[in-house]
């Protein structure tokens, strides 16, 4: 039973019998159900960028089209991804039953609240002019505040889900919620720019957007560096997670896509654009930067899930 095999099914089974750190094989691509388990990663990604897009679109750039796309990504994209992941999707309603202790229940309730508030806030601007409020009225502003608060919770709850797993030391850190939150906001900025551009409009304050993006990218880079240093200084299991992130095939996703393509290149583009480039070249560079940021966002979530290792169940004292 302890011998490894070439078939992937047996390799996963072997993971159950390992004496050292065990890889979690439940969440993310390459899990027990291969590609299907990747839908959970997609749900986390879509929830983050959708909620982020709503916040960025309504708060900074006042784009109704982009805000609607953001809400749709959460309401449709995240929901469908969750349903595709579940083993028994017909019982999905049961997921809301234990918010007192389960972060999954809390997160899905945040999601419903966000969609309700955001849809109500946007209603007057998308053809429901009969509603007794406008986006600028006091009630409209109250709805917007509710949507912003619940969107923030949607962005951050994935981090709490991972941080609540005590035996996976690379997840069980207070860095997870701010890391997921910052990535979600940056993803929102990227999605806003791409949506507005795709709709044939122009963002009036491209400079402000680049500045916001540069601040977010710098924060994300700092958080990733702290995360790496934290793992290096933590338990043997966390160090093994770090070794997987930087010394195995996973390094392509973590270093190549998440850090270099998803963080450093957009950071260089952001500063370069601020200093020199104007006009069409700047817009093309910005669009490329947004696509790279989104790829980096998906990649870092994938890397974090894949590098999740359980602490060995026993120590040498036995």
């Amino acid at each position: 039973m302890e011998s490894s095999s070439t078939s992937s099914g047996s390799v996963l089974q072997f993971e159950d019998f390992k004496s050292g750190p065990r890889a979690q094989t439940e969440w993310g691509f390459g899990g027990k159900r291969k590609w299907r388990d990747g839908w959970l990663l997609m749900a986390m990604f879509l929830g983050g960028i959708g909620a982020g897009q709503f916040v960025v679109s309504t708060w900074f750039f006042h784009s109704v089209t982009s805000a609607v796309v953001g809400v749709a990504i959460v309401a449709v994209g995240k929901t469908v991804a969750h349903l595709l992941y579940l083993g028994q999707p017909s019982r999905f309603y049961r997921l809301f039953l234990k918010p007192r202790t389960s972060w999954i229940s809390r997160g899905l309730i945040f999601m419903i609240v966000f969609v309700a508030f955001a849809a109500a806030y946007l209603a007057p601007d998308i053809g429901f002019s009969w509603v007794p409020w406008t986006t600028g009225s006091s009630l409209g502003q109250a709805l917007w505040l509710g949507a912003i608060l619940s969107a923030s919770l949607v962005m951050v709850y994935d981090g709490f889900v991972l941080a609540s797993c005590k035996s996976i030391t690379s997840w069980n850190t207070a860095l997870m919620p701010p890391l997921f939150f910052t990535y979600a906001i940056a993803g929102g900025v990227a999605m806003t720019y791409l949506t507005v551009t795709a709709a044939g409009k122009k963002i009036l304050s491209e400079g402000d957007m680049t500045t916001l993006d540069a601040i977010l990218l710098t924060t994300m880079f700092a958080l990733v560096v702290i995360y790496i240093v934290n793992m290096a200084a933590s338990t043997a299991t966390a160090r093994e997670s770090l070794r997987r992130l930087v010394g195995t095939r996973l390094a392509v996703a973590f270093i190549g896509l998440a850090i270099v393509a998803g963080l450093l290149v957009p950071l260089v583009i952001a500063y370069y654009r601020e200093l020199a480039v104007e006009g069409t070249v700047a817009s093309v560079l910005l669009a490329a930067s947004c696509i790279l940021e989104l790829a980096g966002d998906l990649s870092i979530r994938h890397s974090i899930l894949s590098a999740g290792l359980h602490t060995p169940v026993f120590s040498e004292g036995l």
């Binding site: 439940e26 083993g87 999707p89 019982r91 999954i104 889900v161 999740g308």
Partner: peptide, 13 residues
């Protein structure tokens, strides 16, 4: 009653 979200499997040490 289980929906197969596998949070328990990930959280079990």
């Amino acid at each position: 009653q289980c929906v197969g979200c596998r949070y328990c499997a990930v959280a079990c040490p």
